[in-house]
């Protein structure tokens, strides 16, 4: 994060010094500035170097691969040298044309965004609530037990979870039987949970919540533990009740954590959870459930495995949208709460 007290001081200092030096000449002032900063910070730079090198190699270098999106399917097998393979393929925009030519593409983008937004709006606050509840429980063993029980589903694969819920929500399964016996459902036409288009998005959100709330709450539990207990003491002395304490101390105390998690989460907006949706979707729920990921998987399915151009094009498209969203959210967050990632 940007503005911390120490950095402000340094900024002032170097600003004052630079002011003197700037009087001389621009280029030499810049060089002196740099060497002074270098001397002061070289050990810090050493700490950061490995991460920078990794980011350079695995994140920046591969960006050149984006050009694959503009090439007809490159035959990497025939040519042993990737550059040669690249040169031997023709330039084309057909991949983008293919993505956007499907009239349903807007629907798929819409589905992706709707499911993602629903997940954020409904499922983002819940881990925070759960974390607060867990930390407020007085019995330590109970809160540890709950934490453990609640975060176990995270480790199950989506295929397993969907299998479980398909049995639980089967047309003659336990849930429907209970609802019928309570009179809330017609015995002759029980709900077909996984096959009803209108219920699909809700089911996706519900399953996702069931799986992830526990695991996501861990970050917040640790953030809450880090809050200075003296603040609570002081508040109690001032006569604050439980809810007042939570509202005025706990939540503001973990606000920076919440904001960061939110911005990062928004960066994944375009990924509405491919593994999950792919496991849950069926022919009759494609209307509200087909997301960009499952659509691309469908058109480049199985045997057409050499479709690098198309998948890169989709990746590029997703990446651009995510970038815009992150920049936008970060800007809003800076404007309103003065905290942001960059």
């Amino acid at each position: 994060m940007e503005r911390t007290p120490v950095k402000e001081q340094e900024a002032l200092q170097s600003g004052a010094q630079a002011g003197e030096v700037r009087a001389e000449s621009r280029s030499s002032g810049w060089m002196k500035d740099f060497s002074r900063k270098w001397k002061r910070r070289k050990t810090l730079l050493l700490f950061v170097l490995p991460a920078v090198v990794l980011a350079l190699i695995f994140n920046y270098l591969p960006m050149v691969g984006v050009l694959i999106a503009f090439k007809d399917n490159i035959n990497f097998i025939r040519y042993s040298n990737p550059l040669e393979a690249f040169m031997n393929a023709t330039w084309t925009v057909e991949h983008f044309q293919k993505i956007f030519s499907d009239p349903e593409i807007l629907k798929y983008i819409g589905n992706t965004l709707i499911i993602s937004v629903l997940k954020i709006v409904i499922l983002f606050p819940l881990p925070v609530v759960l974390a607060v509840m867990i930390t407020e429980v007085s019995s330590k063993w109970f809160s540890k037990l709950t934490q453990m029980a609640v975060f176990l589903p995270h480790f199950l694969s989506w295929v397993v979870i969907v299998g479980i819920f398909k049995s639980v929500l089967a047309i003659d399964g336990p849930v429907n039987q209970v609802l019928v016996s309570m009179g809330l459902m017609d015995a002759n036409s029980p709900t077909y949970w996984f096959g009803t288009d209108s219920l699909f998005r809700g089911l996706v959100v519900f399953l996702s919540g069931w799986k992830e709330i526990g695991y996501s709450s861990i970050v917040y539990v640790s953030a809450i533990m880090a809050i200075d207990p003296n603040l609570y003491e002081a508040a109690k002395l001032d006569g604050a009740g439980k809810f007042r304490q939570i509202w005025s101390i706990t939540l503001p105390g973990i606000l920076p954590t919440i904001i960061i998690m939110l911005i990062i989460r928004v960066g994944y907006l375009m990924d509405a959870g491919f593994d999950q949706v792919y496991a849950m979707i069926s022919s009759v729920t494609r209307n509200s459930g087909e997301i960009i990921g499952t659509y691309v998987y469908r058109i480049s399915l199985g045997e057409n495995a050499g479709q690098y151009g198309l998948s890169t094009a989709v990746g590029l498209f997703n990446g651009i949208i995510s970038l815009i969203l992150i920049l936008f959210t970060n800007w809003i967050s800076k404007k309103t709460t003065h905290t942001g990632i960059f």
Binding site: Y79, N81, P82
Partner: peptide, 17 residues
């Protein structure tokens, strides 16, 4: 960076198959 990338790609030659 870009030149580095290009160079690294051409460096991996396959030789005669």
């Amino acid at each position: 960076l870009a030149t580095l990338v290009m160079a690294s790609f051409s460096a991996c030659t396959g030789g005669e198959t």
